[in-house]
Design a protein around this nucleic acid. Sequence first.
DNA 1: ACCTGAACACCGTTCAAGT
DNA 2: ACCTGAACACCGTTCAAGT
Lengths: 260, 260
Amino acid sequence: MSDAAAGNPAPPPPSPWERERPARPQTAPQRTPLSRERIVEAAFTVLDRQGLDGLSMRQVAAELGVTVSALYAYVSSKDDLLELMYTRLFDGFTMPAPDPERWREQIRDYAHAGRKRLLSHRDVARISMAHVPFTAELLPHVEGLLAIFRTAGLPDRIAAEAGDLISTYIDGFVLEEGMWQDRAAARPDDGDSSLARPDWREMAGEMQNYFASLPPADFPHLRALADVMVSDSSDERFDIGLEIILRGLASYLPDKAPDA
Amino acid sequence: MSDAAAGNPAPPPPSPWERERPARPQTAPQRTPLSRERIVEAAFTVLDRQGLDGLSMRQVAAELGVTVSALYAYVSSKDDLLELMYTRLFDGFTMPAPDPERWREQIRDYAHAGRKRLLSHRDVARISMAHVPFTAELLPHVEGLLAIFRTAGLPDRIAAEAGDLISTYIDGFVLEEGMWQDRAAARPDDGDSSLARPDWREMAGEMQNYFASLPPADFPHLRALADVMVSDSSDERFDIGLEIILRGLASYLPDKAPDA
DNA sequence: ACCTGAACACCGTTCAAGT
DNA sequence: ACCTGAACACCGTTCAAGT
Protein backbone atom coordinates (compact mmCIF):
# COMPACT_ATOMS: atom_id res chain seq x y z
CA MET A 1 0.00 0.00 0.00
CA SER A 2 1.67 3.18 -1.15
CA ASP A 3 1.31 6.49 0.62
CA ALA A 4 -0.84 7.79 -2.18
CA ALA A 5 -3.17 4.80 -1.98
CA ALA A 6 -3.56 5.40 1.75
CA GLY A 7 -4.50 8.98 1.12
CA ASN A 8 -1.24 10.38 2.44
CA PRO A 9 -0.02 13.48 0.65
CA ALA A 10 3.20 13.48 -1.36
CA PRO A 11 6.38 14.49 0.44
CA PRO A 12 7.06 18.21 0.34
CA PRO A 13 10.24 19.87 -0.90
CA PRO A 14 13.22 19.55 1.42
CA SER A 15 13.02 21.81 4.45
CA PRO A 16 15.79 24.12 5.58
CA TRP A 17 16.58 21.73 8.45
CA GLU A 18 17.56 18.85 6.28
CA ARG A 19 21.19 18.06 5.71
CA GLU A 20 22.00 17.75 2.02
CA ARG A 21 23.08 14.30 1.06
CA PRO A 22 25.26 13.01 -1.75
CA ALA A 23 23.24 11.91 -4.78
CA ARG A 24 22.44 8.22 -4.83
CA PRO A 25 24.63 6.34 -7.36
CA GLN A 26 22.44 5.17 -10.23
CA THR A 27 24.54 2.36 -11.68
CA ALA A 28 23.23 -1.18 -11.89
CA PRO A 29 24.41 -3.39 -8.99
CA GLN A 30 27.15 -5.84 -9.97
CA ARG A 31 28.06 -7.76 -6.85
CA THR A 32 26.03 -6.54 -3.89
CA PRO A 33 27.49 -3.03 -4.06
CA LEU A 34 27.12 -0.62 -1.25
CA SER A 35 23.99 1.50 -1.02
CA ARG A 36 22.35 3.79 1.45
CA GLU A 37 19.84 1.06 2.18
CA ARG A 38 22.48 -1.58 2.92
CA ILE A 39 24.35 0.83 5.14
CA VAL A 40 21.25 1.64 7.14
CA GLU A 41 20.46 -2.04 7.49
CA ALA A 42 23.97 -2.78 8.75
CA ALA A 43 23.69 0.15 11.14
CA PHE A 44 20.57 -1.34 12.70
CA THR A 45 22.36 -4.66 13.07
CA VAL A 46 25.22 -2.98 14.90
CA LEU A 47 22.76 -0.94 16.96
CA ASP A 48 20.88 -3.99 18.16
CA ARG A 49 24.12 -5.74 19.01
CA GLN A 50 26.10 -2.92 20.61
CA GLY A 51 23.64 -0.18 21.44
CA LEU A 52 23.81 3.45 20.39
CA ASP A 53 27.05 4.07 22.26
CA GLY A 54 28.67 1.23 20.36
CA LEU A 55 27.36 2.33 16.98
CA SER A 56 30.35 3.69 15.10
CA MET A 57 31.01 4.21 11.43
CA ARG A 58 33.87 1.78 11.71
CA GLN A 59 31.63 -0.93 13.18
CA VAL A 60 29.08 -0.40 10.44
CA ALA A 61 31.81 -0.67 7.83
CA ALA A 62 33.11 -3.85 9.44
CA GLU A 63 29.60 -5.28 9.41
CA LEU A 64 29.57 -4.73 5.65
CA GLY A 65 33.09 -6.04 5.14
CA VAL A 66 34.28 -2.71 3.86
CA THR A 67 36.55 0.17 4.83
CA VAL A 68 35.15 3.08 6.81
CA SER A 69 35.93 5.58 4.12
CA ALA A 70 33.79 3.65 1.66
CA LEU A 71 30.67 4.66 3.61
CA TYR A 72 31.24 8.33 2.98
CA ALA A 73 30.44 7.92 -0.69
CA TYR A 74 26.84 7.16 0.29
CA VAL A 75 26.38 8.93 3.56
CA SER A 76 27.67 12.39 4.28
CA SER A 77 28.20 11.95 8.02
CA LYS A 78 27.24 9.87 11.00
CA ASP A 79 24.46 12.34 11.73
CA ASP A 80 23.17 11.78 8.23
CA LEU A 81 23.14 8.04 8.88
CA LEU A 82 21.26 8.50 12.15
CA GLU A 83 18.68 10.65 10.40
CA LEU A 84 18.29 7.94 7.78
CA MET A 85 17.72 5.37 10.51
CA TYR A 86 15.20 7.64 12.20
CA THR A 87 13.31 8.09 8.95
CA ARG A 88 13.38 4.39 8.14
CA LEU A 89 11.47 3.66 11.33
CA PHE A 90 8.42 5.25 9.74
CA ASP A 91 8.53 3.07 6.62
CA GLY A 92 5.15 1.58 5.87
CA PHE A 93 3.53 3.66 8.56
CA THR A 94 0.52 5.58 7.28
CA MET A 95 -1.85 7.91 9.03
CA PRO A 96 -5.56 7.17 8.93
CA ALA A 97 -8.10 9.60 7.55
CA PRO A 98 -9.30 11.66 10.50
CA ASP A 99 -12.59 10.52 12.00
CA PRO A 100 -14.00 13.00 14.52
CA GLU A 101 -16.06 10.29 16.19
CA ARG A 102 -13.03 8.12 16.81
CA TRP A 103 -10.24 10.62 17.43
CA ARG A 104 -9.27 9.18 20.80
CA GLU A 105 -9.03 5.71 19.37
CA GLN A 106 -7.00 6.98 16.45
CA ILE A 107 -4.54 8.70 18.77
CA ARG A 108 -4.31 5.57 20.88
CA ASP A 109 -3.51 3.55 17.78
CA TYR A 110 -0.92 6.09 16.74
CA ALA A 111 0.72 6.02 20.14
CA HIS A 112 0.80 2.24 20.29
CA ALA A 113 2.28 2.04 16.82
CA GLY A 114 4.84 4.66 17.78
CA ARG A 115 5.89 2.83 20.89
CA LYS A 116 6.09 -0.45 19.00
CA ARG A 117 8.27 1.27 16.42
CA LEU A 118 10.61 2.59 19.10
CA LEU A 119 10.83 -0.82 20.71
CA SER A 120 11.63 -2.51 17.40
CA HIS A 121 15.33 -1.75 17.73
CA ARG A 122 17.52 -1.06 20.71
CA ASP A 123 18.05 2.57 21.71
CA VAL A 124 16.02 4.04 18.87
CA ALA A 125 14.07 6.13 21.37
CA ARG A 126 17.33 7.94 22.02
CA ILE A 127 17.76 8.52 18.30
CA SER A 128 14.16 9.65 17.99
CA MET A 129 14.42 12.15 20.84
CA ALA A 130 17.31 13.81 19.04
CA HIS A 131 15.30 14.41 15.87
CA VAL A 132 12.38 16.54 14.90
CA PRO A 133 10.02 15.04 12.28
CA PHE A 134 10.01 18.15 10.11
CA THR A 135 11.70 16.52 7.16
CA ALA A 136 10.12 15.95 3.78
CA GLU A 137 9.47 12.25 4.38
CA LEU A 138 7.98 12.71 7.84
CA LEU A 139 5.92 15.83 7.48
CA PRO A 140 2.91 13.87 6.15
CA HIS A 141 2.77 12.07 9.48
CA VAL A 142 2.73 15.33 11.39
CA GLU A 143 0.00 16.54 9.06
CA GLY A 144 -2.03 13.41 9.70
CA LEU A 145 -1.70 13.81 13.43
CA LEU A 146 -2.76 17.45 13.38
CA ALA A 147 -5.62 16.52 11.09
CA ILE A 148 -7.00 14.16 13.72
CA PHE A 149 -6.81 16.80 16.45
CA ARG A 150 -8.28 19.61 14.38
CA THR A 151 -11.01 17.51 12.85
CA ALA A 152 -11.96 16.39 16.34
CA GLY A 153 -12.71 20.01 17.11
CA LEU A 154 -9.76 21.02 19.28
CA PRO A 155 -8.88 24.72 19.27
CA ASP A 156 -5.91 25.50 17.04
CA ARG A 157 -3.49 26.41 19.81
CA ILE A 158 -4.32 23.17 21.61
CA ALA A 159 -4.05 21.06 18.47
CA ALA A 160 -0.71 22.64 17.64
CA GLU A 161 0.69 21.65 21.02
CA ALA A 162 -1.00 18.26 21.15
CA GLY A 163 1.17 16.75 18.44
CA ASP A 164 4.37 17.66 20.23
CA LEU A 165 2.92 16.53 23.53
CA ILE A 166 2.06 12.99 22.58
CA SER A 167 5.18 12.57 20.44
CA THR A 168 7.31 13.65 23.37
CA TYR A 169 5.37 11.35 25.64
CA ILE A 170 5.95 8.34 23.41
CA ASP A 171 9.65 9.02 23.00
CA GLY A 172 10.17 9.81 26.65
CA PHE A 173 8.30 6.78 27.91
CA VAL A 174 10.17 4.33 25.70
CA LEU A 175 13.45 6.06 26.50
CA GLU A 176 12.86 5.36 30.16
CA GLU A 177 11.89 1.78 29.42
CA GLY A 178 15.18 1.37 27.62
CA MET A 179 17.13 2.91 30.49
CA TRP A 180 15.65 0.41 32.90
CA GLN A 181 16.52 -2.42 30.59
CA ASP A 182 20.06 -1.15 30.24
CA ARG A 183 20.44 -0.87 33.98
CA ALA A 184 19.14 -4.40 34.41
CA ALA A 185 21.46 -5.67 31.70
CA ALA A 186 24.43 -3.91 33.29
CA ARG A 187 23.93 -5.57 36.66
CA PRO A 188 26.75 -8.06 37.30
CA ASP A 189 24.20 -10.29 38.97
CA ASP A 190 23.88 -13.67 37.36
CA GLY A 191 26.80 -13.67 34.97
CA ASP A 192 26.20 -13.56 31.23
CA SER A 193 23.04 -15.64 31.25
CA SER A 194 21.61 -13.93 28.17
CA LEU A 195 23.16 -10.85 26.70
CA ALA A 196 20.16 -9.83 24.61
CA ARG A 197 17.29 -10.27 27.08
CA PRO A 198 17.42 -7.86 29.99
CA ASP A 199 15.01 -8.95 32.65
CA TRP A 200 12.39 -6.39 33.55
CA ARG A 201 10.99 -8.44 36.37
CA GLU A 202 14.33 -8.73 38.06
CA MET A 203 14.79 -4.97 37.94
CA ALA A 204 11.29 -4.49 39.28
CA GLY A 205 12.08 -6.67 42.23
CA GLU A 206 15.20 -4.72 42.96
CA MET A 207 13.30 -1.44 42.74
CA GLN A 208 10.67 -2.75 45.09
CA ASN A 209 13.30 -3.81 47.61
CA TYR A 210 14.92 -0.42 47.41
CA PHE A 211 11.66 1.47 47.90
CA ALA A 212 10.75 -0.80 50.79
CA SER A 213 14.09 0.02 52.42
CA LEU A 214 13.39 3.76 52.47
CA PRO A 215 12.67 5.39 55.81
CA PRO A 216 8.85 5.32 55.98
CA ALA A 217 8.68 8.65 57.77
CA ASP A 218 10.59 10.44 55.02
CA PHE A 219 9.11 8.76 51.96
CA PRO A 220 5.52 7.82 52.72
CA HIS A 221 4.19 8.52 49.22
CA LEU A 222 7.01 6.82 47.36
CA ARG A 223 6.52 3.75 49.51
CA ALA A 224 2.79 3.84 49.03
CA LEU A 225 3.16 4.06 45.28
CA ALA A 226 6.04 1.61 44.92
CA ASP A 227 3.71 -1.34 44.53
CA VAL A 228 1.62 0.11 41.77
CA MET A 229 4.65 1.62 40.01
CA VAL A 230 6.33 -1.73 39.88
CA SER A 231 3.47 -4.16 39.59
CA ASP A 232 1.82 -2.50 36.62
CA SER A 233 3.23 -3.65 33.32
CA SER A 234 4.88 -1.22 30.96
CA ASP A 235 1.90 -1.53 28.66
CA GLU A 236 -0.49 -0.56 31.41
CA ARG A 237 1.63 2.35 32.56
CA PHE A 238 1.94 3.60 28.98
CA ASP A 239 -1.82 3.54 28.56
CA ILE A 240 -2.41 5.37 31.83
CA GLY A 241 -0.18 8.27 30.86
CA LEU A 242 -1.70 8.33 27.40
CA GLU A 243 -5.19 8.48 28.87
CA ILE A 244 -4.25 11.42 31.09
CA ILE A 245 -3.21 13.35 28.01
CA LEU A 246 -6.31 12.33 26.04
CA ARG A 247 -8.58 13.45 28.86
CA GLY A 248 -6.78 16.75 29.04
CA LEU A 249 -7.24 17.27 25.34
CA ALA A 250 -10.89 16.23 25.49
CA SER A 251 -11.50 18.93 28.09
CA TYR A 252 -10.98 21.50 25.34
CA LEU A 253 -13.72 20.16 23.10
CA PRO A 254 -16.47 22.76 22.88
CA ASP A 255 -19.83 21.12 23.51
CA LYS A 256 -19.41 17.40 23.96
CA ALA A 257 -19.93 15.46 27.14
CA PRO A 258 -16.74 15.82 29.21
CA ASP A 259 -16.16 12.08 29.31
CA ALA A 260 -17.31 10.72 25.95
CA MET B 1 17.39 27.43 53.76
CA SER B 2 18.41 23.82 54.33
CA ASP B 3 16.39 20.86 53.16
CA ALA B 4 15.46 20.05 56.71
CA ALA B 5 14.24 23.57 57.33
CA ALA B 6 12.03 23.35 54.25
CA GLY B 7 10.54 20.14 55.52
CA ASN B 8 12.29 17.96 52.97
CA PRO B 9 13.25 14.51 54.23
CA ALA B 10 16.88 13.45 54.57
CA PRO B 11 18.46 11.70 51.60
CA PRO B 12 17.96 7.93 51.65
CA PRO B 13 20.71 5.29 51.44
CA PRO B 14 22.27 4.88 48.00
CA SER B 15 20.06 3.02 45.55
CA PRO B 16 21.20 0.06 43.46
CA TRP B 17 21.25 2.33 40.36
CA GLU B 18 23.92 4.63 41.62
CA ARG B 19 27.44 4.26 40.42
CA GLU B 20 29.88 4.00 43.29
CA ARG B 21 32.27 6.91 43.40
CA PRO B 22 35.74 7.27 44.83
CA ALA B 23 35.72 8.68 48.34
CA ARG B 24 36.14 12.40 48.50
CA PRO B 25 39.66 13.36 49.63
CA GLN B 26 39.48 14.91 53.08
CA THR B 27 42.76 16.83 53.15
CA ALA B 28 42.82 20.58 53.66
CA PRO B 29 43.16 22.53 50.40
CA GLN B 30 46.63 23.98 49.88
CA ARG B 31 46.61 25.80 46.58
CA THR B 32 43.20 25.48 44.91
CA PRO B 33 43.51 21.72 44.66
CA LEU B 34 41.19 19.73 42.50
CA SER B 35 37.85 18.65 43.89
CA ARG B 36 34.65 17.15 42.60
CA GLU B 37 33.03 20.57 42.90
CA ARG B 38 35.69 22.32 40.87
CA ILE B 39 35.56 19.65 38.20
CA VAL B 40 31.80 19.95 37.90
CA GLU B 41 32.07 23.71 37.69
CA ALA B 42 34.66 23.47 34.93
CA ALA B 43 32.47 20.95 33.14
CA PHE B 44 29.58 23.42 33.08
CA THR B 45 31.91 26.06 31.69
CA VAL B 46 32.97 23.76 28.88
CA LEU B 47 29.38 22.69 28.33
CA ASP B 48 28.16 26.24 27.88
CA ARG B 49 31.00 27.02 25.52
CA GLN B 50 31.10 23.86 23.42
CA GLY B 51 27.84 22.05 23.98
CA LEU B 52 27.40 18.46 25.12
CA ASP B 53 29.08 17.05 22.03
CA GLY B 54 32.15 19.14 22.77
CA LEU B 55 32.25 18.22 26.43
CA SER B 56 35.22 15.89 26.85
CA MET B 57 37.28 14.92 29.85
CA ARG B 58 40.27 16.42 28.12
CA GLN B 59 38.53 19.75 27.64
CA VAL B 60 37.46 19.82 31.27
CA ALA B 61 41.04 19.06 32.33
CA ALA B 62 42.34 21.83 30.07
CA GLU B 63 39.83 24.23 31.60
CA LEU B 64 41.36 23.42 34.98
CA GLY B 65 44.93 23.58 33.73
CA VAL B 66 45.51 19.97 34.57
CA THR B 67 46.12 16.64 32.88
CA VAL B 68 43.19 14.42 31.97
CA SER B 69 44.33 11.61 34.18
CA ALA B 70 44.21 13.91 37.20
CA LEU B 71 40.43 14.01 36.96
CA TYR B 72 40.10 10.30 37.54
CA ALA B 73 41.21 10.65 41.12
CA TYR B 74 37.97 12.54 41.83
CA VAL B 75 35.56 11.23 39.26
CA SER B 76 35.28 7.60 38.30
CA SER B 77 34.17 8.15 34.72
CA LYS B 78 32.63 10.63 32.35
CA ASP B 79 29.23 9.15 33.14
CA ASP B 80 29.89 9.82 36.80
CA LEU B 81 30.70 13.44 35.97
CA LEU B 82 27.50 13.79 33.96
CA GLU B 83 25.49 12.38 36.83
CA LEU B 84 27.15 14.88 39.14
CA MET B 85 26.20 17.71 36.80
CA TYR B 86 22.65 16.42 36.61
CA THR B 87 22.40 16.31 40.39
CA ARG B 88 23.91 19.76 40.81
CA LEU B 89 21.07 21.25 38.80
CA PHE B 90 18.77 20.53 41.70
CA ASP B 91 20.93 22.34 44.25
CA GLY B 92 18.88 24.72 46.36
CA PHE B 93 15.67 23.39 44.85
CA THR B 94 13.16 22.36 47.50
CA MET B 95 9.66 20.98 47.18
CA PRO B 96 6.80 22.79 48.91
CA ALA B 97 4.58 21.12 51.45
CA PRO B 98 1.61 19.73 49.53
CA ASP B 99 -1.49 21.92 49.61
CA PRO B 100 -4.56 20.15 48.19
CA GLU B 101 -6.24 23.48 47.45
CA ARG B 102 -3.33 24.67 45.35
CA TRP B 103 -2.02 21.50 43.75
CA ARG B 104 -2.29 22.85 40.20
CA GLU B 105 -0.39 25.96 41.09
CA GLN B 106 2.25 23.94 42.88
CA ILE B 107 2.74 21.74 39.84
CA ARG B 108 2.92 24.81 37.62
CA ASP B 109 5.60 26.28 39.86
CA TYR B 110 7.49 23.01 39.81
CA ALA B 111 7.34 22.84 36.02
CA HIS B 112 8.45 26.43 35.59
CA ALA B 113 11.34 25.93 37.99
CA GLY B 114 12.27 22.75 36.16
CA ARG B 115 12.29 24.40 32.79
CA LYS B 116 14.30 27.31 34.14
CA ARG B 117 16.79 24.86 35.56
CA LEU B 118 17.14 23.09 32.22
CA LEU B 119 17.61 26.39 30.44
CA SER B 120 20.29 27.53 32.88
CA HIS B 121 23.01 25.73 30.96
CA ARG B 122 23.29 24.64 27.39
CA ASP B 123 22.21 21.09 26.51
CA VAL B 124 21.36 20.10 30.07
CA ALA B 125 17.97 18.86 28.88
CA ARG B 126 19.88 16.21 26.94
CA ILE B 127 21.74 15.27 30.10
CA SER B 128 18.53 15.24 32.09
CA MET B 129 16.71 12.99 29.64
CA ALA B 130 19.46 10.43 30.04
CA HIS B 131 19.02 10.22 33.81
CA VAL B 132 16.38 8.99 36.16
CA PRO B 133 16.03 10.93 39.44
CA PHE B 134 16.09 7.82 41.60
CA THR B 135 19.34 8.63 43.33
CA ALA B 136 19.71 9.41 47.01
CA GLU B 137 19.99 13.16 46.47
CA LEU B 138 17.03 13.42 44.13
CA LEU B 139 14.53 11.04 45.63
CA PRO B 140 13.18 13.71 48.03
CA HIS B 141 12.08 15.71 44.99
CA VAL B 142 10.21 12.75 43.57
CA GLU B 143 8.63 12.21 46.96
CA GLY B 144 7.57 15.86 47.09
CA LEU B 145 6.01 15.65 43.65
CA LEU B 146 4.09 12.50 44.43
CA ALA B 147 3.00 14.06 47.70
CA ILE B 148 1.32 16.90 45.81
CA PHE B 149 -0.53 14.54 43.51
CA ARG B 150 -1.64 12.14 46.19
CA THR B 151 -2.64 14.86 48.65
CA ALA B 152 -4.68 16.46 45.91
CA GLY B 153 -6.74 13.29 45.81
CA LEU B 154 -5.55 11.63 42.63
CA PRO B 155 -5.91 7.83 42.50
CA ASP B 156 -2.63 6.04 43.20
CA ARG B 157 -2.13 4.66 39.72
CA ILE B 158 -2.66 8.13 38.25
CA ALA B 159 -0.38 9.83 40.76
CA ALA B 160 2.34 7.25 40.11
CA GLU B 161 2.25 8.03 36.41
CA ALA B 162 1.81 11.78 36.79
CA GLY B 163 5.30 12.37 38.12
CA ASP B 164 6.91 10.69 35.14
CA LEU B 165 4.53 12.43 32.79
CA ILE B 166 5.29 15.99 33.76
CA SER B 167 9.02 15.31 34.21
CA THR B 168 9.16 13.86 30.73
CA TYR B 169 7.17 16.80 29.42
CA ILE B 170 9.57 19.34 30.92
CA ASP B 171 12.65 17.54 29.66
CA GLY B 172 11.20 16.92 26.24
CA PHE B 173 9.97 20.45 25.76
CA VAL B 174 13.29 22.05 26.68
CA LEU B 175 15.15 19.48 24.62
CA GLU B 176 13.20 20.60 21.57
CA GLU B 177 13.79 24.23 22.41
CA GLY B 178 17.49 23.52 22.47
CA MET B 179 17.36 21.71 19.15
CA TRP B 180 15.77 24.69 17.50
CA GLN B 181 18.38 26.96 18.96
CA ASP B 182 21.15 24.68 17.74
CA ARG B 183 19.69 24.59 14.28
CA ALA B 184 19.44 28.34 14.24
CA ALA B 185 23.01 28.70 15.49
CA ALA B 186 24.26 26.25 12.87
CA ARG B 187 22.81 28.23 9.98
CA PRO B 188 25.62 29.86 7.97
CA ASP B 189 23.38 32.87 7.51
CA ASP B 190 24.87 36.04 8.91
CA GLY B 191 28.40 34.98 9.70
CA ASP B 192 29.50 34.77 13.30
CA SER B 193 27.43 37.68 14.56
CA SER B 194 27.13 36.28 18.06
CA LEU B 195 28.19 32.78 18.93
CA ALA B 196 26.28 32.57 22.17
CA ARG B 197 22.90 34.01 21.21
CA PRO B 198 21.00 31.91 18.69
CA ASP B 199 18.12 33.86 17.27
CA TRP B 200 14.77 32.26 17.86
CA ARG B 201 12.89 34.80 15.82
CA GLU B 202 15.03 34.21 12.77
CA MET B 203 14.37 30.48 12.96
CA ALA B 204 10.68 31.14 13.42
CA GLY B 205 10.62 33.18 10.25
CA GLU B 206 12.35 30.46 8.34
CA MET B 207 9.89 27.87 9.64
CA GLN B 208 6.99 30.05 8.66
CA ASN B 209 8.37 30.48 5.15
CA TYR B 210 8.83 26.75 4.85
CA PHE B 211 5.32 25.95 6.02
CA ALA B 212 3.91 28.58 3.72
CA SER B 213 5.72 26.90 0.81
CA LEU B 214 4.01 23.57 1.35
CA PRO B 215 1.39 22.45 -1.16
CA PRO B 216 -1.87 23.66 0.41
CA ALA B 217 -3.81 20.68 -0.85
CA ASP B 218 -1.49 18.22 0.87
CA PHE B 219 -0.83 20.07 4.13
CA PRO B 220 -3.92 22.06 5.03
CA HIS B 221 -3.67 21.56 8.79
CA LEU B 222 0.05 22.20 9.03
CA ARG B 223 -0.43 25.43 7.12
CA ALA B 224 -3.35 26.42 9.26
CA LEU B 225 -1.40 25.81 12.44
CA ALA B 226 1.90 27.27 11.26
CA ASP B 227 0.99 30.74 12.44
CA VAL B 228 0.05 29.77 15.95
CA MET B 229 2.96 27.31 16.26
CA VAL B 230 5.41 30.01 15.37
CA SER B 231 3.86 33.15 16.75
CA ASP B 232 3.33 31.82 20.25
CA SER B 233 6.34 32.27 22.45
CA SER B 234 8.08 29.28 23.98
CA ASP B 235 6.71 30.30 27.36
CA GLU B 236 3.15 30.27 26.08
CA ARG B 237 3.56 26.96 24.31
CA PHE B 238 5.06 25.42 27.45
CA ASP B 239 2.11 26.57 29.52
CA ILE B 240 -0.39 25.26 27.01
CA GLY B 241 1.07 21.76 27.08
CA LEU B 242 1.32 21.90 30.83
CA GLU B 243 -2.32 22.89 31.13
CA ILE B 244 -3.40 19.99 28.94
CA ILE B 245 -1.70 17.61 31.36
CA LEU B 246 -3.13 19.36 34.43
CA ARG B 247 -6.64 19.19 33.04
CA GLY B 248 -6.17 15.52 32.29
CA LEU B 249 -5.04 14.89 35.83
CA ALA B 250 -7.88 16.97 37.27
CA SER B 251 -10.37 14.79 35.44
CA TYR B 252 -9.44 11.98 37.81
CA LEU B 253 -10.32 13.90 40.95
CA PRO B 254 -13.31 12.21 42.62
CA ASP B 255 -15.91 14.83 43.46
CA LYS B 256 -14.65 18.29 42.62
CA ALA B 257 -15.94 20.53 39.90
CA PRO B 258 -14.27 19.41 36.64
CA ASP B 259 -12.74 22.84 36.01
CA ALA B 260 -11.83 24.27 39.40
C1' DA C 1 32.86 3.94 -10.73
C1' DC C 2 33.89 2.13 -6.62
C1' DC C 3 36.76 1.13 -2.92
C1' DT C 4 41.39 1.04 -0.06
C1' DG C 5 45.13 2.90 2.91
C1' DA C 6 46.96 6.11 5.41
C1' DA C 7 46.65 10.05 7.85
C1' DC C 8 44.72 13.83 11.03
C1' DA C 9 42.80 15.37 15.02
C1' DC C 10 40.48 13.85 18.34
C1' DC C 11 38.23 10.49 22.24
C1' DG C 12 37.87 7.70 27.49
C1' DT C 13 40.59 5.23 30.56
C1' DT C 14 44.66 3.13 32.85
C1' DC C 15 48.92 3.05 35.20
C1' DA C 16 53.62 3.52 36.20
C1' DA C 17 56.39 7.23 37.47
C1' DG C 18 57.50 11.59 39.39
C1' DT C 19 57.56 15.25 43.33
C1' DA D 1 49.09 13.00 48.58
C1' DC D 2 48.55 14.70 44.34
C1' DC D 3 49.55 15.10 39.70
C1' DT D 4 52.18 14.03 35.05
C1' DG D 5 53.41 11.37 30.86
C1' DA D 6 52.86 7.96 28.05
C1' DA D 7 50.33 4.49 26.29
C1' DC D 8 46.13 1.69 24.64
C1' DA D 9 42.25 1.09 22.06
C1' DC D 10 39.25 3.45 20.07
C1' DC D 11 36.59 7.63 17.38
C1' DG D 12 34.71 10.77 12.69
C1' DT D 13 36.32 12.52 8.55
C1' DT D 14 39.32 13.48 4.49
C1' DC D 15 41.84 12.46 0.48
C1' DA D 16 45.20 10.70 -2.53
C1' DA D 17 45.82 6.45 -4.66
C1' DG D 18 44.58 2.09 -6.58
C1' DT D 19 41.74 -1.07 -9.83
